[in-house]
Amino acid sequence: MKAPAFDYIRAATVAEACAALAAEGPDARLIAGGQSLLPAMNLRLASPRMLIDIGRIAGLGRIAVDGDMLRIGALARHDAILRDATVAHHVPLLTEALRHVAHPAIRTRGTIGGNLAHADPASELPACMLALQAVIEAVSPRGTRRIAADAFFAGLFQTALEPDEMLTAVEIPLPAGPFFFQEIARRAGDYAIVGLAASATRFAYFSVADRPAMRAPFAALDFDPPNDLQATGAMRLHLAGVLRDNALTALGIRA
């Protein structure tokens, strides 16, 4: 199908985007890469009256180590992060996870900021943010706010962002330490049936609940995963346990 009609403006700065969001109200949506929003619009699951295109805001896709953290601008595209040597050196968990994010032609457009703000519970990156204890930076007309990843994902496609707030960057504390990443999907690029992004102490499961779920390595997997065409909830729960065991072995963690 085709998207319903909407108005479109291009924001040149973060301030301009936030002002437009505040002025246009809840029927306005930010668009960056559009790889989640445009399918939803074409399927008419979303019908914003106004799109505010932030895709050309200068400098918002920068990837750099800043003191004891890796800072990734919201507009950094999956493909750019995947190919970035600094990311591969400091946070190889992200590099590994990004290999599993959709297909090459989606990764060239999709952005980390859009992915996190979309908050798809089957997505790899939100779980990575939990495992890495990332901090999400958001800007509004009231100023800049830093939100711990643990408090950011609030439910199915829901985040802690206020209606006039824009996600501008993520900050990942360094050193990131050892990692484990594995997901089970029927085909490369498909949505994960279940996945696990883990550091030595934080195991973040995805595709098991309405949001990514963080558990200590040996904590009970008290999830009630959904049934859908890909898998039953019981199969997801079983596979989550398999991934946890794989992670414990790979990371050399003993009870």
Partner: peptide
């Protein structure tokens, strides 16, 4: 499919592989 799944609309945009159904012409 017109929602980014099938790849039939694949083109190059500034040298990069993209889904033409998931890029607005204005973008």
């Amino acid at each position: 499919c017109e929602h980014g799944v099938c790849g039939a609309c694949t083109v190059r945009l500034d040298g990069a592989l993209v889904r033409a159904c998931l890029v607005l012409a204005v973008q």
